[in-house]
Design a protein around this nucleic acid. Structure first.
Length: 731
RNA sequence: GGGCGCGUAGCUCAGCGGGAGAGCACUCGCUUCACACGCGAGGGGUCGCUGGUUCGAUCCCAGCCGCGCCCA
């Protein structure tokens, strides 16, 4: 409508973990495991599943009447997209930012893969805090530590205390004996120890705790593992514990401590524990060999882009959120032990040399060996999603689309996606294209279920937009969603959608009033006051709506359109012209006003406005020009004020005040007063006198007049004048 | 543990320094020739609590009580 060449890019990511989990679950129901099936066949099954169930979202978009460029639908697993992902990976490798390392990761024993920090959800859990005594090797006493995970005692390699903790100063440098396994380990000093937690002495288990891993690295300690990838006990531990769950092993350890007199106490303890966002399984921090990306340099560029305002988040507080994360960014674990996704473009030869290439190399880059095995891992889904703004446009080729549509303007998403996706799109865009992917990021509200819980499939709290469309109509659903939109999370309610349905209905009926008399045959020549007034109202609303939309304030935009339609257009304008509706000039202006109203409403309610438009046009509203600013009748914006005041008084009390002229004529047409409606004039006078008193009292306050802004004082004086005029009119 | 935000009419939410608002729900009156899926009127709120700043506080500040989210 405004003549811009815009692209709204449709498509999907492949949702690695989630998709694999769903298909695996289905297989299990059929009594097949993915291991039996084999990698190739499994991936084939995922594609089949996608073909069956994919397309739902696009169907929903179409039904909502969203103007996406549907022919350009893209998928992160498309061949062309895969090439972009490989290019990105090889690029990072060439930069030296990609490395393989044994580090502690968030392991989900249910999904059987590592996950990134951002896929971990912290939930408060009630646990027991176990206080265990570690005897000193020299027999001179003991040290007590507190732990919520007694089973990990088996993997302890040290006990750490804070360097400034006087209680334990004399212990540092001595050895203690780890219960159950009998290992002699040193007492070390490290600033990462929280003195206030437990006894202030920390058992150090680098194999199963992120902080301990850091301490272990700093002190050059080993990181033995006693819990395997399957969540079962393993490693250098007593035979009878092998294969137990962590919980069973903990019970054994606690019992052992009790019998040996080393159990000091157990107390209940509530703390937050990481869980896998997908499976809900408690995260097992463990050390494994994974691929990592050093994000420092890319994050610095993104920080610059946001601080300089080249990329702006809305609402503005979110700029800070993004910056805080970017400035404290940590290495990104990008490898996943899954089958569904982009397999790492990494090949190993028998000598362990690593070859990184976009497509399968013929020989090892280092030794020329032809015996190459590809790394079985796939990439984090977000690794590919980060390329969305340009991979969808043909990058790494230099395509016309890429030149025309990159960088884009707006990306809209929920809060929890800021780090996962937005920040990474910005980083990838700056790194690979040398420019930001978009200038504005809208962080919209999350619509909660009516009871305040999150909408989710597993809770059964979700709502299918297709049902809303079936019940209320697509235009009503669009209106309702826009009305609900906010920077604050909102509870879902049918009411705003129902409001939209009423608006569509009202618009339809108002149009019918005009169309019933046939289409106007002359050009509009607005002459009467109500005609100039409605055009002024529409013009004012146009400017306000444009400002709202520019600020991404959709809720206020649709609210204005609702009141313009109901209050101004229907209740006053149409009622005012009704007596003269047969006059060609009146009809001509009415159609002019209706055209403008339909145009303003079209982005919100494309279906009903297009249908009405078709009743008196051969063109399509969707491609008709937007309203151009029209200041002709600006002076008439408040022209109906006196008639509206008279109406309020009459409808409330039955008292008619004297107004005269056009106002009188409009009043009669709109209000249609009874022949000699006679109300309680004295009560009305009393009401107005009260207002006058209030106003006079305020203006008599010297401090108010002296301190309040001139505008406020002037506005108060004007109100006083109006009330005095009203009192006069009451006779 | 760190950070952000929210508590306004029965419900869902606007307003964020000058007389408390919208839609829905509720009550009453209208079959008025576009719409009863409508029109008009009305009832309903110590704007979470306690202090402070100000001529003036729902709005700014502090503390408390509830609730939510993000991060570790």
């Amino acid at each position: 409508m405004r003549g811009f060449n815009t692209l709204w890019q449709p498509g999907f990511d492949h949702a690695g973990i989630a998709t694999q989990a769903v298909v695996e679950k289905e297989l299990r129901r059929q009594g097949v495991s993915r291991l039996e099936l084999g990698r190739e066949a499994f991936v084939q099954r995922v594609w089949e599943w996608l073909h069956e169930y994919g397309g739902v979202i696009m169907h929903q978009f179409r039904r909502l009447g969203c103007s996406l460029d549907y022919e350009r639908e893209r998928f992160t697993m498309d061949d062309a997209y895969v090439r972009s992902v490989m290019r990105f990976f090889v690029h990072l490798h060439g930069r030296g930012w990609l490395y393989r390392d044994n580090r502690i990761v968030n392991w989900c024993s249910d999904c059987r893969t590592s996950i990134s920090d951002l896929e971990v959800e912290h939930i408060d859990v009630d646990d027991a805090l176990t206080y265990a005594r570690y005897p000193l090797a020299d027999g001179s006493g003991h040290l007590t530590i507190a732990t919520v995970r007694p089973a990990t005692i088996l993997a302890d390699v040290a006990v750490a205390v804070h360097p400034d903790d006087e209680r334990y100063a004399s212990f540092v440098g001595k050895d203690v004996i780890v219960p159950v396994v009998g290992r002699h380990v040193p007492v070390i000093a490290d600033e990462r120890v929280e003195r206030e937690f437990g006894t202030g002495a920390l058992k150090v288990t680098p194999g199963h705790d992120p902080v301990d891993f850091e301490i272990g690295q700093a002190h050059d300690l080993p990181a033995p593992s006693v819990i395997g990838l399957d969540g079962r006990m393993t490693g250098d531990i007593p035979e009878k514990l092998v294969g137990l769950t962590e919980e069973e092993a903990s019970d054994y350890v606690v019992e052992w401590l009790r019998e040996e007199g080393l159990l000091e106490k157990r107390e209940s303890y509530r703390h937050s524990v990481g869980h896998c966002e997908r499976s809900g399984t408690r995260i097992q921090p463990l050390v494994s060999l994974q691929w990592w990306v050093d994000m420092g340099p890319m994050a610095a560029a993104a920080v610059e882009a946001i601080e300089s305002g080249r990329v702006t988040f809305h609402p503005p507080v979110q700029n800070r959120v993004a910056l805080d994360w970017l400035t404290a960014i940590r290495p990104w674990n990008v490898s996943r032990q899954l089958w569904w996704g982009h397999q790492l473009p990494i090949w190993y030869c028998p000598d362990g040399h690593v070859t990184c290439a976009e497509s399968e190399p013929g020989a090892c880059a280092e030794c020329g060996s032809g015996e190459l095995a590809r790394d079985p891992d796939v990439l984090d889904t977000w690794f590919s999603s980060a390329l969305w703004p340009f991979a969808t446009l043909g990058w790494p080729e230099d395509t016309p689309d890429l030149r025309r549509y990159y960088p884009g303007d707006v990306s809209s998403t929920a809060r929890e996606i800021i780090f996962l996706w937005e920040a990474r799109m910005i980083m990838a865009g700056l790194e690979l294209i040398g420019d930001i992917p978009f200038s504005d990021v809208i962080i919209h509200s999350t619509i909660l279920a009516a009871d305040g819980r999150r909408m989710s499939k597993s809770l059964g709290t979700g709502i299918d937009p297709l049902e809303l469309i079936a019940d209320h109509g697509a235009d009503a659903t669009r209106y309702g969603l826009l009305k609900m939109s906010s920077t604050q999370d909102v509870r879902f309610s049918q009411q705003p959608i129902e409001e939209g349905r009423k608006l569509a209905n009202k618009l339809w009926n108002a149009s019918r009033l005009l169309l019933l008399g046939g289409v106007a045959e002359v050009a509009a020549r607005p002459s009467s006051v109500e005609e100039r007034w409605i055009l002024a109202r529409i013009e004012a609303t146009r400017a306000e709506v444009e400002a709202d939309l520019a600020g991404f304030d959709f809720s206020h935009a649709v609210d204005r359109l609702y009141h313009l339609t109901f209050d101004d257009f229907c209740d006053w304008y149409l009622e005012a012209i009704k007596p003269r509706l047969q006059e060609p000039d009146v009809r001509a202006t009415a159609f002019e006003a209706l055209e403008r109203l339909l145009t303003l409403l079209h982005p919100v309610m494309p279906h009903v406005t297009e249908e009405i438009w078709a009743q008196f046009h051969d063109t399509r509203l969707a491609v008709s020009p937007w309203i151009v600013p029209d200041a002709r009748f600006g002076d008439d914006l408040d022209a109906l004020a006196s008639a509206q005041t008279a109406a309020r008084i009459y409808r409330r009390s039955g008292v008619r005040i004297k107004i005269g002229g056009d106002a009188e004529r409009i009043f009669d047409a709109v209000v249609r007063p009874a022949a000699d409606g006679r109300g309680d004039v004295e009560a009305e006078r009393a009401r107005v006198r009260k207002e006058i008193e209030r106003s006079e009292r305020m203006l008599a306050n010297e401090k108010f007049v002296a301190n309040a802004s001139q505008d406020v004082v002037a506005a108060e004086r004007e109100k006083l004048d109006q009330y005095r005029a009203e009192l006069d009119a009451l006779g």
